[in-house]
Amino acid sequence: MRMGRRIAATLKRTAVHAGPTVLGIIVLDFLFLQLMPGNAADVMATEAGSATEETVAALRHQFGIDQPVLTQLLNFLGHLAHLDLGFSPRFNTSVADLIMARLPNTLLLMVTALALALVLGIVFGAVMAAWAGRWPDRVLSVIVLLFYSMPGFWVGLMAVVLFSVKLGWLPSDGNETIGADLTGFAMVSDRLAHLVLPALALASFFVAVYARLTRAAMLEVQRQDFMRTAKAKGLHPLLIQLRHALRNALVPVTTVAGMHLGNLLGGAVVVETLFGWPGMGRLTLEAVLGRDYAVLLGVLLLSSFVVIVANVLIDLLHAWLDPRIGSA
């Protein structure tokens, strides 16, 4: 009813904004990539060692990169209109297949990191606010400040040194034990063990952001009149904090979470490389090094798509948390 209407309004708003945005992103990405020195043919020729002018020219023709830029762009858009992302000269397979093989891994990492960041951040922030100025607040504040100021890859490296190298508790490479051929519960727990460190490394900065935000928002809420109303009903303080204060404090937290989604994807590139995680981030790096523009464009397109979809989800969450949104 009311809720449904609000969700519909949110979806419509997003669709109207997202279409033109995606098109703009594609064209800009395409033009920027033209500015990069070198192309796939050059790289492959160099790797092959002894290549003649003719073979390079043949490769260029084969990849379609000997045509004018505008023609290339129109070709690309034409294929895209048929949901065809093109063919990767370097990996010698279709870009869509390449990406689809990696996308689930990246999504898993991102969603885990975001959930971890939100849960840890909100719990830390709520605890800090509840004990504001006393020792739990101070201890957590120091930890949060560390997370805030250390780059994710550094947190990741330190976690690898501690948990993989010294303690040997968690694996530090890949997303599963290679050749172990596990099934059922063993497989799930193996995957989870591989997920922990990269997700933590990716989440650390955002834990800090959400914790600080939650703390500030929770303290702000305490002064509101409706908190006194809730107390005047004789409700238990814990219920008041969870139902009345936290619900309000989550509104700014989810807003910021939405704005950080792009950064999270960017951070994934670094973390995936560090942990050998077979996701889109690593694919991106390989594509850049190989000047494989077809793959790169596909990745960029998919990334913007992922961010937009995630933003819609955040918007929906937001509309659910704050009834004032989308009802006007």
Partner: peptide
Amino acid sequence: EMREVRGAQVSLIQQEPMTSLNPVLS
């Protein structure tokens, strides 16, 4: 014990109706 009194034996209406209800709860 005071929580048993609040809302059941003594209740309170505040001045500002715009802010004394929680905006995110029905």
